[in-house]
């Protein structure tokens, strides 16, 4: 399996390499006459960039997939969660980039790194909490009644979206910052939104695939649906634990 992952990773990187060059070249070449065309091109490329960017490792796809593996969820909610994550991603990236850039013009990278590290810790703790919440709730319901009522998914869904989205994507921030430096503020915001929409689509697909998996598993498990729910919680706890350990180490 690793050779497929490796080939996939190489392809993703090489597409991003080309798109990165294309975006920077287009933004730098902007002038009064061609700006409409360039705006449209940049927004299109940024969307594609986001789509491919989120297909690489990370962006909470595994987390979203594990979350929906517990079953009892619809395609629509998987789609919604993908977009909730990308919305928070875009807002945090724009807020941090504009905030840090205008408040403390110099030392941008240091400030971003410091912010990013703290945000990643918060994110890891939140992921752990969501996992624990799912496991405990599932256990308590199982004890109370055999056919337990579903977990309050809305609360844990928002927590998932926030825990993934709170860490701004450096990819989005790089484009926004590049636009700010060339005084293309509107374009920076539009590009960030377009890129986030692309990323949202990819993250949603991970969630939808997981819903499909859970639906296929449900008839096999029948009344033992809580096993999927527990498993989903345990996997989320494992992810949170790994992230926390990795962050505390670095």
């Amino acid at each position: 399996m690793s050779e497929y992952y490796n080939a996939f990773l190489k392809q993703i990187i090489s597409w991003q390499y080309e798109l990165n060059r294309l975006v920077s070249g287009e933004i730098r070449g902007i002038n009064d006459e061609n700006f409409l065309g360039v705006y449209a091109t940049i927004i299109g490329i940024a969307f594609l960039y986001g789509l491919i960017h989120a297909a690489g490792p990370g962006h909470g796809k595994a987390l979203v997939a594990f979350y929906f593996a517990k079953g009892k969820e619809s395609y629509k909610s998987a789609f919604k969660l993908g977009y909730l994550i990308s919305l928070i991603h875009a807002v945090s990236a724009l807020a941090v980039t504009f905030g840090i850039f205008f408040i403390i013009e110099k030392m941008f990278r240091h400030n971003f790194d410091a912010y990013s590290q703290k945000a990643m810790l918060v994110s890891a703790v939140m992921i752990l909490t969501v996992g624990l919440y799912i496991v405990v709730k599932s256990y308590l319901e199982r004890r109370k009644v055999h056919e337990g009522t579903p977990v309050d998914t809305k609360k844990s869904r928002y927590a998932i979206a926030f825990s993934v989205g709170v860490v701004p994507c450096p990819g989005v921030m790089t484009i926004v910052l590049f636009c700010i430096m060339l005084k293309q503020f509107t374009l920076g915001i539009l590009a960030a939104v377009a890129m986030s929409i692309g990323m949202g689509l990819t993250i949603s697909i991970a969630g939808i695939l997981s819903v499909v998996f859970a639906e296929k598993m449900q008839p096999l498990m029948r009344s033992k649906g809580y096993i999927l729910e527990m498993l989903s919680g345990v996997l989320i706890i494992a992810l949170g634990g790994f992230l926390l350990a990795a962050n505390l180490q670095s």
Binding site: S2, Y5, G56, P57, G58, A62, P170, L239
Partner: peptide, 16 residues
């Protein structure tokens, strides 16, 4: 492999 994908949460790459 799956866990590693998540560990490199903010990788994928950002600098070329």
């Amino acid at each position: 492999l799956l866990l590693f994908c998540v560990l490199s949460l903010w990788a994928h790459p950002h600098t070329f």
